[in-house]
Nucleic acid binder design. Structure first.
Length: 424
RNA sequence: GUGGGUGUGGCCUAGCGGUUAGGGCGUCAGGUUGUGGCCCUGAAGGUCGUGGGUUCAAGUCCCAUCACCCACCCCA
């Protein structure tokens, strides 16, 4: 028997309401914040990710899906959304558009990871990028938008963790201080950390090993080494967040795993979940990425948030999502004339915009009525031989199970969010 | 890559080493001629993840393997 590849999942009809709920809200918010949609290919040249995400990051070292196509080109299924957007920005000369340019996407990302709760080899991200804006206002607006999304989805207890990791000017001083500090302490630390000490010293800070964590706790803080500009940037952002009444706290050990970040980095974390590792969103500033990839110097920042993790939290927090029936009318038919008339009527109603389920020609009327009830249709139309000959139909209003359940739920007042599964 | 747990029909699940592996949900068909939701009856559907082993006897014990889940790691 074939099964979905490890770490991937089928999103069955029963689950679709969650996805529709989150995606439609994300698009709605993106538009309200002035973001335009961009879609990039599922795969890119392998080198793009190596140059942007970083050669020694875990993502690039061992988690990408790489393949060679028949022309001999090296390609990689995108492990994240920012690099492709930056590439498209440069390739199509979008830097000629009025700045800042705000782009969003909803797309799958691929990482060869060991699957776990909320972690998949294919997962969907809602992401956004603001290109061509160096002011902390953009940082504030980005975090505010994500915050607003979580609020409107009715997710509770979300906290933002923020940090500043400095810029090209001040980071070298910080890295040197870190190196000095860790040179003295490296002996007792875990093998992973010893390796990171050589390759990417910043990552030592977020090691979860107990002994390493206590060392990291006392390590020099990046915020103490910021240049004046970075300091001002950081403080201004904090003031904006406080103004917006967004729950946030600083954590000097927050270091994100992608090399292109500078200055602001942040993560969104559900507070009450037992572990603190399960961030549902994150992002940061990447002022040098566009230039690194061959574009003009372009300060920028972005965010990504995982749809599976949002849905997981919606379920854990028991956010009620109502799905009003997707069927308006069920047409039950009998006899060859009835079938003929039923098909015509169904087509006619569908042309007028109704959602119509036409009964099976081989089921009894009783069976069709049962199906009508389960379908959630509000109305049943019955066409038998008699009706077909007299060109009439029997119209019957249905008070079906689903409707009753919804009424009960509403009576209980258990509706922190209302959601109608209607296109417009 | 490292540790731990689980694996019984589409879903949930009972099953102290021993008769034809039970139940619930769902599906399908009926409960008098053309009508739903409740109720009743019946049916279909399982090589008990897979492969070895122990035993007179294995869903039940042992080993291996695979898959899934959880944690580490990493991140969305």
């Amino acid at each position: 028997m074939y099964t979905a590849p490890r770490g991937t999942q089928d999103i069955l009809p029963i689950e679709q309401k969650y996805w529709h709920y989150v995606i439609s809200k994300a698009e709605d918010i993106a538009k309200r914040y002035g973001f335009a949609r961009i879609d990039t290919p599922l795969f890119e040249e392998t080198a793009l990710f190596h140059r942007s995400v970083g050669e020694v990051t875990d993502i690039v070292e061992k988690e990408t899906y790489d393949f060679k196509d028949k022309g001999g080109g090296y390609l990689t299924l995108r492990p994240e959304g920012t690099a492709p957007v930056a590439r498209a920005y440069i390739e199509h000369g979008l830097f000629n558009e009025p700045k800042p340019l705000k782009l969003y996407y909803i797309a799958p990302a691929f990482r060869y990871d060991r699957p776990q709760k909320g972690r998949f080899r294919q997962h969907y991200q809602f992401g956004g990028e603001i290109l061509g804006d160096a002011h902390p206002l953009a940082d504030g607006e980005t975090i505010s938008m994500l915050w607003q999304l979580y609020q409107e989805l009715a997710l509770k207890n979300i906290v933002f963790i923020i940090n500043s990791i400095g810029c090209a000017q001040c980071r070298p001083f910080y890295l040197k201080a870190l190196k000095d500090y860790y040179t003295k302490n490296i002996d007792g630390m875990c093998p992973d950390c010893k390796c990171r000490f050589e390759k990417n010293i910043l990552r030592l800070l977020d090691c979860k090993e107990e002994k390493c964590a206590s060392v990291a706790q006392k390590a020099p803080r990046s915020t103490d080494y910021l240049c004046l500009e970075c300091q001002t940037h950081h403080n201004t952002l904090k003031a904006y967040l406080a103004d917006l009444k967004i729950s946030f706290r600083e954590n000097h050990r927050l270091v994100r795993g992608l090399d292109y970040y500078n200055r602001t980095v942040f993560e969104a974390v559900p507070q009450d979940s037992s572990g603190q590792q399960s961030s549902i969103g994150g992002g940061g500033r990447y002022d040098n990425l566009v230039e690194q990839l061959g574009g003009p110097p372009t300060p920028a920042l972005g965010f990504g948030t995982g749809l599976e993790r949002i849905i997981l939290n919606l379920k854990e927090q028991r956010v009620a999502i109502f799905e009003i029936s997707h069927i308006d009318v069920y047409i039950a038919i009998m006899g060859s004339d009835g079938r003929q008339q039923g098909l015509l009527l169904a087509t006619n109603l569908r042309q007028q915009g109704y959602r119509v389920l036409l009964g099976s020609g081989e089921k009894s009327l009783k069976a069709q009525m049962k199906q009508a009830d389960k379908s959630g249709a509000k109305w049943a139309l019955i066409i038998g031989e008699e009706e077909a000959q007299q060109k009439t139909v029997i119209l019957k209003a249905l008070q079906n199970q689903q409707e009753q359940q919804n009424l009960e739920q509403k009576a209980l007042g258990n509706n922190p969010t209302k959601y109608l599964d209607k296109p417009s």
